[in-house]
Design a protein around this nucleic acid. Sequence first.
RNA 1: GGCUUCCUAGCUCAAUGGUAGAGCAGCUGACUCUUAAUCAGUAGGUUCGGGGUUCGAGUCCCCGGGGAGCCA
Length: 495
Amino acid sequence: MSDIVSDNSHDQHAVRRQKLADLRAAGVDPFRANANPTHFSADAIKAYVPGQENVVAVAVAGRLVTIRDMGKSQFVKILDQQGQIQLYVKKDVVGDDAYAAFKKLDLGDIIGASGTLFVTKTGEVTVRVDSYVLVSKALRPLPEKWHGLSDPEQVYRQRYLDVIVNAESRARLLLRPRVISHIRRFLEARHFIEVETPVLEATAGGAAARPFKTHHNALGADFYLRIATELRLKRMLVGGFDRVFEIGRIFRNEGVSRKHNPEFTMMEVYQAYSDYRGMMDLIRDLLTSLVRDVVRPADGSLKLKHAVSGHDIDFGAPWREVKYKDLIREATGDADWFARSKAEKIAGAERLGLGINTAWEEFEITNEIFSKKIEPNLIQPTFVTHLPKELCPLAKITRDDPTTIDVFELIIGGMEVAPAYSEQNDPDVQRQMFEAQAGEERQNIDQDFLLALEHGMPPAGGMGLGIDRLCILLTGAESIRDVILFPQLRNAAPA
RNA sequence: GGCUUCCUAGCUCAAUGGUAGAGCAGCUGACUCUUAAUCAGUAGGUUCGGGGUUCGAGUCCCCGGGGAGCCA
């Protein structure tokens, strides 16, 4: 028998430890038992045949999350991958000994139960339990049943508790794998091949970002964690893999914010014999199908709530397409903005309330206006096209405007979600573009990539899609941390 | 990196510089269709850590740790 002194009865960990010791003393080790469920919870509920009370037999397993004890019978709920299902445990069905043991179970314990389905007087499909087994004793209590877990630090550090007690977190974090699965099926249906390229790179190229650095002992060499997959995937275009994509972890040694985690997931896709306009069709079809088939807004529309602005984002309406320069001219009210001197641009930016570093290049001053004054206000899906060529060396120069490149940046909810280019495949122009880079957008030059281009790369459209930001939009989350299972935090203080 | 703000029971939250409280969870008991079940009783605190001011600090000040928001 448990011999808990009253001083310890408040200590839930000690109480549960004692219960575990009692079980072991009685010859039961709940960590060695197992269950053989036949159904997940939602499937079991679906298996109920109306009118056939206590006919359909099921076995389910999961964590006890609700206990309503009424003396000689109990209603409890267990949680599994599909959600919750109610169990009805009656003393005169399971027997006196099993019932007495059931009363000693705690919230959080993991059990298996078999029985038959029936409907309660309030209409809830429930398992009438014939037998059950405790398969894992929980030694720590669950968070509060009604308010759940709301301390953000604990939500991130102990995500497993968050998804047990916060149904919204569960739903949000379960949407992400469905999104990724949909993307794979969407692309594979269009003959794209999924490939895997190195995370450890001698040169961190394909984007402008500070990399993480590491060291390979046996090779005696430093390596960088990749900041993009672009240059590797383009090598495969050279190799004749005409439609390739990769969904992979990218690492950037930069700030942490609501929109940035140091490691994040990017999908990059390249299609030979296409261009940035082809990528527009691809991303529009992809995102529209994600909203329609994965998110499935309840009202049947293609509108999603945007958490930050409170507006609805309508994926079903025509997507706006606008040139970068036109947005700048509109924001500055200056039709001749791009003919202005650097001093005039600084003055113009400061008139808009921006702090300008005089060491910046002119395109950086202009881009500060874009990122601070324009981008945050582009809530509806918007293709911003024809960016200044200084912003990216990897795209083709626009034929009738040598100052811009054939690209778009898809902005949704005020965030850059997907950049796409007509990929530069002229090795000489590519080398010149690399060498002409300036300012903070400078990318490292990957000489081996230039060698690959000299072998001939087919014309192609390419695109990146930030999976985390996409999931923010699709789930109506406020922060990237809400769509990443374990977002990056500092080490917790030593206990 | 800077500014602002937060950290109190297992969880969610209270507490003018003046005896640290509540709900849920826990513990003891009642109840064989409950839905945040209900009812009776009961226990539970290094107020993130350290230092200071004060007759007196959860509260004010300083240092450190961690989280969040804004900014570079």
